[in-house]
Each structure stands twice: as C-alpha cells, then as structure tokens.
Design a protein around this nucleic acid. Sequence first.
DNA 1: CGCATGAATGTGACCGGTCACACAAGGCGC
DNA 2: GCGCCTTGTGTGACCGGTCACATTCATGCG
Lengths: 345, 345
Amino acid sequence: MNVTGHTRRPASIRDVATAAGVSYQTVSRVINGHPSVRPATRERVLAAIEELGFRRNATALALASGRTRTVTVLTANTTHYGYASILQGIEESARAASYAVGIGVLESAEDAAVAAEVQRATDAGGGIVVIAYDPAGVRALGAVPEGLPVVGVVETPASPPGGDSPWVWTDDREAAYQATRHLLSLGHETVHYVAIPSSTRRTSARTSGWRQALKEAGAPEPRPVQSSWGPAGGHAAALKLARDPSVTAILCGNDDLALGVLRALHETGRAVPGEVSVAGFDDAPHSAFLTPSLTTVRLDFTGLGRAAFALLHGALEESAPVAPHPVSVPELVVRESSGPPPSGS
Amino acid sequence: MNVTGHTRRPASIRDVATAAGVSYQTVSRVINGHPSVRPATRERVLAAIEELGFRRNATALALASGRTRTVTVLTANTTHYGYASILQGIEESARAASYAVGIGVLESAEDAAVAAEVQRATDAGGGIVVIAYDPAGVRALGAVPEGLPVVGVVETPASPPGGDSPWVWTDDREAAYQATRHLLSLGHETVHYVAIPSSTRRTSARTSGWRQALKEAGAPEPRPVQSSWGPAGGHAAALKLARDPSVTAILCGNDDLALGVLRALHETGRAVPGEVSVAGFDDAPHSAFLTPSLTTVRLDFTGLGRAAFALLHGALEESAPVAPHPVSVPELVVRESSGPPPSGS
DNA sequence: CGCATGAATGTGACCGGTCACACAAGGCGC
DNA sequence: GCGCCTTGTGTGACCGGTCACATTCATGCG
C-alpha cells in the first residue's frame, strides 16, 4: 500500500511541462543541460521536476536516441574468482559512466546455445563484453556480428595488438615466465606445468612463458599436463605427477588447480615445499590462507574488467576517454608453497 | 566492414509488412501468435521475417507494453562464492523465461550510494532481486519503494513466512543445528562459534541453530566470536580461540572463515582434527580440497537464486508458475576437519 | 433474403522521450 | 526603421512496437 493511496504512473516530461507552464521540449532542454533556456524558466522546470519526482524514462530514452547505455557481459560462469572479478571491474566502471550492466551466462559451448546468447546480448543494444577464456566464450566472441561494439577479454590477442584491437588481456606470458623463473632460481632442475584448457588451438601464453623460462635456463621441458579448470583437475593431474620422484616443482594454470595439486601431494605423502614446490596463477583470495600458503602470480582481474569497459566506452562514445590498456603488470607473490628442492635429489 | 557493404538499420515490423504486402499490425499479430491470421498470410509474413532477419526490438517492446522483462540483481559483491552462485541461479531461470538480467553492485552501505543504486535498478524497470546478507543489501532492500516487484534473498525472513512474502532464504537455523549436533556427537564438550556479521540487529538464524543444539545437549554456551566475511577474519578470531586449550570444536559462519581458522590453528600448532575440530558453512568448491578437507553444510545457492527468480516471475506475470520456495534442505558434509576431541582432554 | 456474427485485416493513437524545424522577441548594424 | 542574427520557446514527426477500434468480407440463421 502506498502513502498516496495507489501507485501512480511516474511523471513524464509532459507532466512536468504542464506543471511548469512550458512545453515538453523546454523540459527536455533543461534535463539535457541545453544552454539557451532562460534561468528563470530553468528554475521553474527544475522545481516541477523536483516536486513531481520526475525521472527520465530509460526505455523511452533508448528508443528515441538509439543509444542504450548498456553493456552486456557474456561469460561461461559467474562463480569463478577471475570471471567474477572481471565482472565486478566492468560493473564498477559502467556504474561510474551511468551504464547499465547486463549479464548472460553461456551455459554450453554448443553453437546454437552460444548464438542464442549472443542474440540476446545484441537485442539489449549497447555494447558487449565477452569473457573469452574458454571455448564457450571464444565461440561467443566469434559469433558476434561484424560491426557491433564488442570487447573480448582474451587469453592472448589473436593478432598484433597494434591500434585499437577490441581486446583486453593480461600479460600471461610474462606472469608464467616470472613464476617459472622463480622456481628455477630456487634450484629446481625443471618445472612441470599443469595447464588449464586452452581456449584456442594455439599454444597459450602461459605455456609459452613457462617454456621460454625453461629454455633460457637450459632446463629440460616436460610435457605440459592438460587439465581442467577446477581443483578436481589439478588433483587428478598431480596424482600422476606425484608418482614420478623427479618432479620437484609444479606450476599450475590457476590457483584452483594448485589447490587440487596441493591436496594430491598431501595424499601421496609428498611434502610441500620440502619435496615438491607448487605455484599457482591468479592469487585468489583464499590462496594466502592455504596450508601451505600458495606462491602465485597476482593478476588484476578487476583492472582488466575496467579496461574492457573503457575500451567499449570509447567505441560507443566519441567523448569517452580512451584508456590505453592500463592493465597492471602481473606480480609474483612468493609464499610457503615454493622452496628449494630436496637436497638429496 | 560488412558483407552487405555497410551496417543497415535493422528491419522493423513496417519493413516486414511492406515486404509481405500486409499491414504492420498483421505482422505484430504473427509475432505474437494471434490466432486470427489466415495461414497463407502467416506464411508470407514469416517468410518476410526470415528474409529480412527481423528481430523484435526489445526497447520498443518495453516502451509500448510497459513490461521490461528484466530483473536487476543488487548485490554488495559478485566475487563471493555464495553471492555469485545466487546470481548464476537467477540468470539461469531468467534466461529460461527470456528475461534479461541486470546487475548493480552496492559498493558502500552508505545511504546515498545505496539509494542511487536502487534508483538505477528501478529505472531499468522490471523486477529487482536484492541479496540482503549484509548491511548494504539490507539497506537496499529497505530502500526499494513500496509497490515495486522485489524479492529479497535474506538471512532470515523478517516476519512470519506465511503467504507470499517477497523473500527467499535457506534454512540456516537447521544447518547450524545439524553442524553443531554433529560436532557434539563426536564427543566435544561444547562448540565455539565464529560468526559472520549479522545483517540485522536480531540474532542470526545460524547463531540460534547453534545455540539450540548446545542447549539441547546441555552444553555450555560460549560467547560467539563476531568476525568478518573473509578468511582474514576467521584467522584473527581463531588466533584468540587457539590460546584457550579448552576449545576443541569451532563452527564457522562460512567456509572462508573456516579457511582462516584452519590456517590460524596450523600456525599455532594445533592439529585439526586431532586437537580441534572445525566445521564451515556453504560447501564452497574448494572446501573439499583443503588439507584437512572441510566438514561443512552444503547450501544450495543456485537453487536459492532460481527460487528468487521464480517468486519475482510470479509477481510480474499472472501466468508464471509460482514455485513454492523449493529451496533444498541444507546437507551436512562430513570431511576430515572434524573428529573426536583429544582423549586426554 | 436481410441481418447479426465472427474472422481477417487495416487505421490511428499512444508509450516517453529526441530531433529538426518554425517562430516570436530582442539587440545590433546600417 | 528595416533586415538580420541570436536567443528562447513551441510544434510536429519519429523511434518501433502495442492497443483499441474501424472496416471488410464470408458465413449462419431466422
């Protein structure tokens, strides 16, 4: 029940116009800050707006102007820490720019389902951000019709990142390189790699950063172990690796994987970092509190989301500030899970 | 560059009408499945729709019909596992019902900021779901103007949950009760409780479930330790508790807290579960892989999100199926972190 | 056979804004 | 004092749909 008796239809500019004794166009001018409105008139209109509690109808605005001020985020998942952080970053920037944020979950990577989601995002108008770290995301990014404003949050840019390519990414190669070098510098003969699924057919940036560090150090290059995204994958992968006593250092494609690896090493009785060192990727919030706490590379997902929005915003409006990929550099965080290899080795 | 040369304006129903040689109204009838359209006409219209690639403009539809088919989720955070899962559940149901999902993050609990977010959500039209587990969410829920379709995902229903109260919740009381009983049944004299911040001034359901179990068992009731949401809070709280040798069982308000508690116990050299048992809440994906793996109570957040949408959907459309709070019952998951108290105790 | 009835379709107004243009009043140059 | 430009304001059409009502034509029935 409403104080005023019943819920009344919200005031439109014509209601305001009548109340202020002007035409609706004048009201429109006032709300849009048009210069040529006499101060006295402006005052009257503003008073009427205040009194009637007028708010500009977003739907009508979108229909008339053609601009939706909306960004739709397409993602395969909202619960993964990285994805959720990117979303949060996008929302933060979008809110500051008075954009609405929509979200679409790509439940399957099947073409029809992906196409349907892209359609829905397209129907919403405005811009699209696709988190393309996984097959579903990659397909979605590919399925966006040419000419639409879209930004992909990708593992690696698909072509030379010159100019205004519609992608943002973190320097995963550098991150993997740093982590691998860290482990090698502790004295490990080589570093094994448990990989997250690659979104493309090409070698992932993480893999190549790892590989480069090994090559530079003249370390043997073991086959990367392909795994999944979650702890279960890391667990399974590490159960195999643990059987090989020569394995003393494991780099994991993300912190979830590392968690599973830690668990598997514990189950097989291999001490971390005494016998085996483990490093992750992402610096998820729980990684610092694991036992042992996890050495990892911190990636600024929130910043990545902000960058994605900035890029989109620039494409959508001339006036928007075109931030040049200000994604911060990955930062190695050394914790307990990495140490020198067993001396007897 | 587009195949057709340049991006053309999408086809409207009038374009389709012209192509099919009928009036725009007939096209409208066809897309809305109105019965009285001659099959031959319908065919022609459908062919024109297909040929022109017509898609109904969501903005125009919203403006004309007044119905937005949108649900906006207001939340303080997108990265917490529980919140993110609820969001995912809402999105899932919304997608099935062809609703768009918008998201607004309540960055601060400050009144003005919360009010602004609620306004934005209101402007979007459609329904609102507020995740009201924290002060920001609770305020947002309170700030939603009377009469608007809104559903709160709350810790505890504010008033007798009879009829069609616009809230969904999990049975936290039962969950805490189960976990506490489990610990007591292992032989612990009592169970200490590290609480997440309560969203309301009243005693939280989790607290009262814990309390009831203690009372029924005739166990002494220690003061609950107020903490924060994240692992850091649990860590700090447990550092204090660890000093007291009589503490042999700790129930934590969520799994993140439990993670911090485990870490603190490790740091202070208290074995889990040898000396101290720990149980959490939520069953986050990583909890099963911790060392020791975490005994916890599984809550169906995704189902909660689905229930929230179902309730909203029912309020928004007569035809919608009104699912009666089908949130699944919390389920105790016993893992390694809980066991009998030290025998010498 | 005339008229009521219903099916099939079309017309105009409307949702709440914006945009392009018309128009009145006032200041300035000549 | 006339034209012209500028300032302030109003009018009409439009965005792409929906809704209420009008119209046409075939049909059924008394």
